[in-house]
């Protein structure tokens, strides 16, 4: 096995709030090799974005980060701000849920693309322009040369996300973090954007972290999936193993809550009752216990550690793991 491109070791993020310190990320370990896709799945607020911002070293100012983020042989936390800035946008790129987070509303699309390219690659203006047009064409934008002169607000949501992806890909990054890149988009456009990301990833042998709250989005597209809950990774497995032999009640509940196309209309959905725990309150026991249908008394007293399952690379954190044979149908 080759050395991983990215290693997240015991990473924790705490954020100061008026109600006390908030555990946004609670000691996460993950690794990712070049050319592979890691899906990160979990409900809103479970720490997906904070984890990716920890990797990018783009946390809110007062956040406290512990643990190590090794990328391409260097510890990002130790890197000087200037070197970090150059790394981001070049080797380490990101696409956010809201494309306007990464696009500047007052600059034309051409200016934004060309600036990024010229900042990181040694290209003159005509070359950068040519490359911008190629990139826009690659992400499926019709008449790309005309788009260069337009502003983001003149494009639809789907177009803007394509442009944000073009900018992210412009310097051939080694790792692309896509944080809910399609959550704000229609299903048809979502499918196009996910295909686009997969295609560019294969072509560039790029590593990708695909963050979403929908297990359906990662099913056919990630090599490995990590399920997060209340700041922790609670299950992690090669994609096939996760869907076929999941052990975590939370993973099962997330999957069951997705409306199924083959279910008859008016079939009640197995919803997860309640909400994730307040991350500013101390937790005893399993964080999922108040919502878990399998919870027993031990679940409320001790915290289950991540444990290896029978399949290599499959880990879960549960005292009473489900066996897929027992799984009640969705």
């Amino acid at each position: 096995m080759s050395a991983p491109l990215l290693t997240i070791a015991d990473v924790a993020v705490e954020l100061p709030t008026p109600r006390g310190s908030l555990r946004a990320v609670d000691h996460v370990d993950l690794s990712l090799e070049a050319g592979r896709t890691l899906g990160i799945v979990g409900e809103s607020g479970c720490g997906k974005t904070m984890l990716s911002r920890a990797v990018l070293q783009l946390l809110p100012k007062r956040a406290k980060l512990t643990g190590r983020v090794m990328f391409d042989g260097q510890d990002l936390a130790q890197l000087a701000p200037e070197r970090l800035r150059r790394l981001r946008g070049r080797d380490l790129a990101v696409v956010f849920q809201d494309p306007m987070t990464s696009l500047n509303p007052v600059l034309t699309i051409g200016t934004q693309l060309m600036e990024t390219i010229q900042e990181h690659l040694e290209l003159d203006a005509p070359e950068a322009r040519k490359r911008s047009i190629e990139l826009l064409a690659a992400v499926g934008i019709p008449a790309p040369d005309q788009r260069l002169a337009q502003y983001p607000h003149q494009c639809s949501g789907g177009m803007r996300q394509r442009i944000a992806i073009a900018i992210a890909l412009s310097c051939e990054p080694k790792l692309l973090i896509a944080d809910e890149p399609t959550t704000a988009l229609d299903v048809t456009i979502q499918a196009q954007i996910l295909d686009l990301l997969a295609r560019e990833q294969r072509r560039r042998h790029m590593a990708m972290i695909l963050i979403t709250h929908d297990l359906g989005v990662v099913a056919g597209r990630a090599d490995e999936v990590a399920v997060m809950y209340a700041g922790r990774v609670v299950e992690r497995a090669p994609t096939q193993a996760l869907f076929k032999r999941m052990h975590m009640p939370y993973t099962e509940a997330l999957l069951a809550a997705i409306p199924k196309l083959d279910a008859a209309p008016h079939t009640p959905l197995p919803a997860i009752s309640g909400r994730p725990p307040d991350p500013t309150r101390p937790l005893r026991g399993c964080s999922f216990a108040p919502r878990c249908r399998y919870a027993a008394s031990d679940c409320h007293h001790a915290k289950p550690a991540l444990t290896s399952a029978e399949i290599p690379g499959h880990l879960y954190a549960c005292f009473h793991p489900i066996q897929m044979t027992e799984r009640v149908g969705a």
Binding site: V187, Q190, G216, A219, G220, R221
Partner: peptide
């Protein structure tokens, strides 16, 4: 066809 199906055996 555009609906993501939560099954890794179904290639999108």
């Amino acid at each position: 066809q555009a609906i993501p199906v939560p099954d890794p055996d179904i290639r999108p």
